[in-house]
Design a protein around this nucleic acid. Sequence first.
DNA 1: TGCATCTGACAAGGGGTCATGTCAGTATGC
DNA 2: GCATACTGACATGACCCCTTGTCAGATGCA
Lengths: 208, 208
Amino acid sequence: MMADSIQTPSKRYRGSSAEERRAERRTRLVRAAVRTYGQRGYHNTSVKAVCEAAGLTERYFYESFANSEALLVACLRAVTQRLVAAVRDSAGGADTGPAGRVRRMLATYFTVLQRDPAAARVFLVEIGGVSPLVDQEFRQALGRFADAIADAWGLPPDGRDPLLLAGMVGGVMHLALAWAASGYARPLPQVVEAALRLCAVLGPAGEG
Amino acid sequence: MMADSIQTPSKRYRGSSAEERRAERRTRLVRAAVRTYGQRGYHNTSVKAVCEAAGLTERYFYESFANSEALLVACLRAVTQRLVAAVRDSAGGADTGPAGRVRRMLATYFTVLQRDPAAARVFLVEIGGVSPLVDQEFRQALGRFADAIADAWGLPPDGRDPLLLAGMVGGVMHLALAWAASGYARPLPQVVEAALRLCAVLGPAGEG
DNA sequence: TGCATCTGACAAGGGGTCATGTCAGTATGC
DNA sequence: GCATACTGACATGACCCCTTGTCAGATGCA
């Protein structure tokens, strides 16, 4: 009755421990949030709406997240990690030089964004200025993306201008947004070529 | 007593007509809004706060704007119009070829943004995804900026790729944001040169 | 001076959200 | 079978915001 909550007995439920259940609920919340953000926009998405989409109650929301912003950060991390990983992976394969690598990476990037336009909109546009923490997280994600491209060009780490890198990824991002705003009117290869010209500001002068 | 409100008599007050007073209140609201957005961020700025900053009551807010979004659009228009005009103006003067023109325009752009970082943050970052109307307004502003640079390059209107234009301005914008995030660490000329490399994706191949 | 109009201050209804609390029902381990 | 811990549904209070309304006082015009 007194001090037996020091050890968490962690009863098993439906075949999983308390920790596992908590983790699963957390995952469900993140997934539901990404979906709901995409449908209603981040600013119009309440905690209640996310919980309903996840099939959980608000009580379980505050079990895993301090507030709405914490959930957004978790979603942002999940989404960008997957995206950057996919982009990096596509750099491998049949090697056709730096330009070929970057081309494949850009194609992957645009394809992934096109696959879920709503989510892309949320995580490229809507999160701007939500909070300093989110901003910082977003900048870091862009930085990782920029590094991936610089790596593909074969640029040595000490030969990279952070400002130019930021401009380059920002440009690719806005190119993707313009493409999306047009309803993906242009064929993918054209989009990739345009983006490649932006990326080429990093690479060696002559590049085909 | 019946139908004498068809004509607005418009009494004079403090030396100005009703229309003039309304317009002046509107201007004060817009100015106060830009200031308050910069201080507290758009999403944390209530109608009440703007009115207090303007030294007016909420009653006068709804006299000029249907809602908070309408005020944001008005502010966005005012700010971007001034910015684009300043950038275009700086293209003139001692002509040193396309690259010189673009350099001067970029210098103006960065200088104006640096002069009011808070406002820049609001109107470059925070307004993303506020509403479809605001998004559209913002895209148009970016388009006008892109056109100004393309004009400075001397690019014929039919030789412009909208996608590449969008990527270019987006890149310059993000470069400015990265510069601001660094606390304006780098000297302006370096920033301008980096941005010029981005802009050069539009211009003729060889450019000094 | 007197009246009509405009102004600024305040109030309040209505709505929504956040975060926490309560409680009966249910699955689990013993 | 029974006690225990967990779950889901609902409820609550506090807070903030939008929007409209009221009203006394100031200001200009005749």
